[in-house]
Design a protein around this nucleic acid. Structure first.
Lengths: 338, 338
DNA sequence: TGTTAGCACTCTCGTTCGTTGAGTGCTAAC
DNA sequence: GTTAGCACTCAACGAACGAGAGTGCTAACA
């Protein structure tokens, strides 16, 4: 029993099977391959090869008189081949973003929408955590009826705001003075330090306790949000477009799994290559055992890596998806990288 | 042929059928009613009554040997009965909101989430348009690298911001002076007026044209957004919980219909009663012919009415849903009404 | 006159049982 | 090593059929 590896011809046949299956979602028979892809070989020859490929674990048969379906292992081989080549970024995708300055959250949400539209899959965008976020500016904007909008801007350009109550004796000049004072004292400090310092001030400073409390609370919230990778999801119900999920129960399980973002976050946080592809059980997410998760990394700030990706059935046009993601990740790196 | 109206007994039977059907989603037979609801009557009697009710258009039979299913007309009668009584706001729902001051958009989004969770239906929240929005304050907050955050606050407390580029010679004091100047000139003006005035300034004022342009653009965007009713949707895929949508095609059609918000907006904009219920074709939304849309109005500011609601199969526990919506609308009126 | 028991009738649903057709594996010839 | 031929397997489809749920109708009863 010689049992050689996957020679060039087997590889071609396997690729043909995958490509046909990606299009049709139907088991592929030997005749189909012999007529549409390898016209110089007879169906019997293809059958022999397919039999070998099945033994090696690249193909599976739903039942004995059906054609073959690629296994996760087959997709893995196929995708590894694709990743060797340079991924060509998709030009259409590049042009999807208006060239406007927007805060990071908006950009990420826009990217998720764009990816979902372009690929017709569920899109995920991971924004990396930013530890040691430092306050760059802090300002109170007057609002009607004894309220004020508190805005905190960090050195990375992240913005967060909240409405707080203030004494209605404070006019806009007074609010500005407070803002200036606070910015002087707090600029350059990390969010953690800000919280500590405010604790100290609060004891001395009676009347404006509400303001200080508001800042502390916003700083706390901001730190909490930025201290962990966050995931944005777009086009979640694109999954219904695929026959793999024509069973409502499966679709529901998938959508529920999407809502528990921790699993996705931890998967995307380990993103250390330009592209990553998790096929089937590799993602270790139950209810997504028949899915592939394809992601591309992007750069935000110095050394922080985010990721954009799609989730869909393992039967996926990987080349197309990789090129779309490549384009989007490049745009994101341009917009957020500086 | 006497053919009287719906007497009290028919009404009771109809109600029993509806309530049983709401629970089980299965056609209801005469024996079920006679045993579970009207134990003093035999199934034969019930049968006669059901036959009458069918003739009057309140019941339908999927096929001759199945039980009866309530028609839209039946739900209508039932709901009209409910609306006569005072709707008791659901206490659980009241406690769902943290008592935090938040901008209107956040409150609306939170309400949508809450409603979706509480009812397990798709939730909609309509925020009414606000014409003649007047600027109350306008402020530039310094950001790193020659950018600034422009914040516009209106008299109603709406907040919108955008990042703009500014000359990096402008420090925080300079930005504040500009802010004060702009606020002095623009406070009290409508968004439309602001746009016009800025057009005039822009011609005189060379270097800071970018700032003025940024304001004009934000004002334009803000006006556009606030000049139309906007709808927020929550829990869109709750629909998959219901056997009526166990067919993926139907579910997809429903979800697509949800994305076209114009129809929903125009439906919710005509909200002139505390509660409204659109059953089946009454909503005039194709792909929601078998749905009911239940809404409760809430008050925002002086005279502006918003609405919160749910969308789900016509087979719906209307009393429960109305009471939940009643509670949420009351909370919203408290938070936004002032 | 309203209510009820009895009964024949109808129609869905689930099961069984061939039939069909796609696709395979194996063998023998090229 | 390749290919034609052929027997074989099994899902999918449809027809036939019995079971069961629920009805409408009739006739008896209060």
């Amino acid at each position: 029993m010689r049992e050689a590896g996957v020679d060039a011809r087997k590889r071609r046949i396997l690729q043909a099977i995958i490509e046909d299956y990606v299009l049709t979602a139907l088991p592929v028979g030997s005749r189909t391959i012999s007529r549409k892809y390898e016209t110089s070989l007879s169906s019997a020859t293809i059958r022999n090869e397919m039999s070998d490929l099945e033994e090696m674990g690249y193909l599976a048969q739903p039942h004995v008189s059906a054609g073959r379906v690629p296994s996760h292992k087959a997709y893995r081989l196929y995708v590894d081949g694709l990743l060797q080549e340079a991924v060509q970024p998709d030009e259409e995708a590049r042009q999807y973003f208006a060239e406007q300055i927007r805060p990071m959250e908006d950009v990420a949400a826009a990217a998720a929408q764009a990816i979902a539209r372009l690929t017709r899959y569920t899109a995920v965008v991971m924004m990396p955590k930013q530890l040691e976020l430092r306050v760059s500016c802090l300002q109170l904007v007057p609002m009607p009826r004894g309220a004020a909008l508190l805005v905190i801007v960090t050195d990375t350009g992240a913005i967060r705001d909240t409405v707080i109550r203030v004494s209605d004796r404070l006019d806009s000049d007074a609010l500005f003075s407070i803002s200036r004072l606070l910015t002087e004292r707090l600029a350059g400090r990390t969010l953690k330090e800000v919280q500590e310092m405010l604790g100290a001030y609060a004891r001395m400073n009676g009347p404006d306790a509400r303001v200080l409390e508001g800042i502390a609370s916003l700083a706390r919230q901001m730190e909490k949000q930025s201290a962990q990778d966050t995931v944005i999801i777009g086009g979640s119900h694109n999954i219904l477009n695929y026959p793999e999920y024509s069973d409502v129960e499966k679709a529901r399980a998938f959508l529920s799994a999407l809502e528990e973002k921790e699993r996705l976050t931890s998967l995307l946080s380990r993103h250390d290559a330009p592209f990553m592809v998790h096929i089937g059980p590799e993602s270790a997410i139950p209810d997504m055992q028949d899915c592939a998760i394809v992601t591309a990394g992007y750069q935000v700030g110095k050394g922080h890596r985010g990721a954009v990706g799609v989730i869909g059935p393992a039967r996926m046009p990987y080349a197309k998806v990789l090129s779309t993601l490549g384009a989007v990740s490049r745009v994101l790196t341009d917009l957020l990288g500086e």
